[in-house]
Amino acid sequence: MDTLKIGSYEFRSRLLLGTGKFTDLDTQGKAVEVSEAEILTFAIRRLNLENPQEPNFLEQLDLKKFTLLPNTAGAYTAEEAVRIARLAKASGLCDMIKVEVIGDPKTLLPDPIGTLEASKILVEEGFIVLTYTNDDPILARRLQEVGVHAVMPGASPIGSGQGIVNENNLRFIIEDAKVPIIVDAGIGSPADCAKAMELGADGVLLNTAVALADNPVLMAEAMKLGVEAGRKGFLAGRIAKKRYASASSPTEGMIE
């Protein structure tokens, strides 16, 4: 069976889903269900003490069915990311962490140095570390050297829906990889998922493209199918591109 192995975990689904920006909890629940995602990302934030009983998506989930992947979103330094990761783990619900150290509020591109520092510390502390990173092959290698369990290069800026902007770099990262490569951020459409998987990525993590689609539930299903199509295409081995045509029908036996 074709499974995705991250650290000690094993998954059937290669689509990881974010849980932000959904307009209502009901739609979100349905989208998660049809996506068949097994890993869901969350952020860690202060509880609103003005309304502490506010309904919360996590509390509606059957936690036996999902692996939680809290992120360190909001962190601009390695120190902040480590603090958030420790808080997430102290919940007792998970030991996975999506390391995310942002370097710039406008592009939300990762700070490579802070990202590497935080990843190293969290690996040493025993977390299963999935690091959101630039699509930089050398940084991806350095992250693997400090022991991360998966590298998650962005396809394009978070929430931009631009799809894969540097296919070449992504290919270099994938070819060099010793841990799963999960394309994270910037996915806009099912075609982007298929493309990432055809390039040989091990998975896709997306959020906005589903949450803000006109029909998030239908889009969740489409993304699932995009990931599956791309994965199967990758495993099947595509034909080489040729410059000229090559007839599909026999050239022999033509009626004269």
Binding site: G20, F42, R45, L47, N56, F57, A73, I158
Partner: peptide, 9 residues
Amino acid sequence: EIVHFVGGG
């Protein structure tokens, strides 16, 4: 600080 899990990507 009292923190919890919220929707995020």
